[in-house]
Amino acid sequence: MIIIGIYYSHRLVLKSNESEDLEKTMNISYKTCKSILFVCGVFSAFLLSGCGATEQTTQPPIQASECRSSEDTSCENEAGPDRSYDPCRINKNLPVCKT
């Protein structure tokens, strides 16, 4: 966008040097500036709105091949918080259960 703006400004300056009709050039410059400002604003808003829009998936898909039939755990429980043995579920009097 900056390069396009510079290019058009440069062309207008050259035009104004060559042409006698400075007011016409200024009118073009004024309109161009407004247009560029508008396009820049829209484009920037579009870019900024995209920042962080991609969801960060922290949980991988569970693959059936990762299940081992020899274990007592199942794939359904593997992604959940209660997938391993915890003595505190049986008896809360252990010292490690006071959390």
């Binding site: 703006g5 400004s9 200024m26 004024y30 500036c33 400002l37 820049c40 900024l48």
Partner: peptide, 19 residues
């Protein structure tokens, strides 16, 4: 108009750099 164009250009550059 010349002044408006200059000011607009300056602001445009500043906004572009900031963004």
């Amino acid at each position: 108009k010349l002044q408006v164009a200059e000011v607009t250009g300056t602001w445009l550059a500043a906004i572009t750099v900031t963004i």
